[in-house]
Amino acid sequence: MVNSGLTQNNQLDKEHSGDKPLRVRFRWLTDNRMSFLFLSPTMLLLLFIAIFPLIWSLRLSFTDWSVIGDAGKIPEPVGFHSYGTALGLGETRTEKRVGVEVAERFAITGQFVLPTVIIELLLGFGLAMLLNRKFLGRGLLMTVMLIPMMLTPVIVALYWKYMLRTDIGVINYLIHDIFGGPRIDWLNQIKIAIWALVLADVWMWTPFMMLISLAGLSAVPKYLYEAADVDQASAWFKFRHITLPMVTPLLLIAVLFRTMDAYRLFDQAWVLTGGGPGGSTEVMSFYLYLVAFKDFETGLASAIGYIMLIVIIALANLLIRKINEIADEG
């Protein structure tokens, strides 16, 4: 069969070739080169859309170039000046203020990310535990519970903006008119506004945690529970020594995803609180946007972007290392 196929190919080459057979003319087109040609359009697109901007922004981070103020000029390198400014090592009063602002915004981001991810983890895992059994309407209930994470963040923020309004919001209606508590000015009080962001994010992303947890729970072998039942183990014992160790790696992956996602929160903060009151909800991405597209300090914004990247890579590595440790122990 192979020989006959080759013969057929040779005949075709001769029929369609001029002086030389096609096989000879395209000898340079090896399998490797062919695969390179197939990949090149995608690689070129990636190069222009992702890799080039990344490298360019890295270059800009070592300049004090402004996309508006210095339009048409070649960015001049200033070393680590922008990084120094962002890290609080600036010399002028404005530069020092930038350093203080960056530190404050990192703290605000931490105030948002930490409670958000913890609450989402606890609620999501708890819901998964409740749903990890067969009952009538389980599928429908799960579908309904997954709706929030399928919505656009801006729309979610708009919903919450109305729901949290002090005068006509449904949340304050419940707190004040139903339960008799005081009206809470969720979006205008410095100490409370960040919790409005947490609330909206928890509502939206707890289903994600639930989904991952549920996947982990359903992967726990049933025979482990059966063996524990034989030994008359308590429910707590089964949870502590079977469920939790088996699910933890998957939970940590979910935590990793949510931490990275919450860390770069922008849209909900923009719509829900607009960074206010008094900048109390200006998380890092929000601040970066202001530096880049309001002040148009492109060099400084690039440096802040890379500092953010380094921080999240460090955080992610810590979590990944923990996941690997657990996997090795397992």
Partner: peptide, 11 residues
């Protein structure tokens, strides 16, 4: 070979 030529032109 014709297939290669076709893909080359497509690329």
């Amino acid at each position: 070979m014709h297939k290669r030529l076709f893909w080359l032109i497509t690329c």
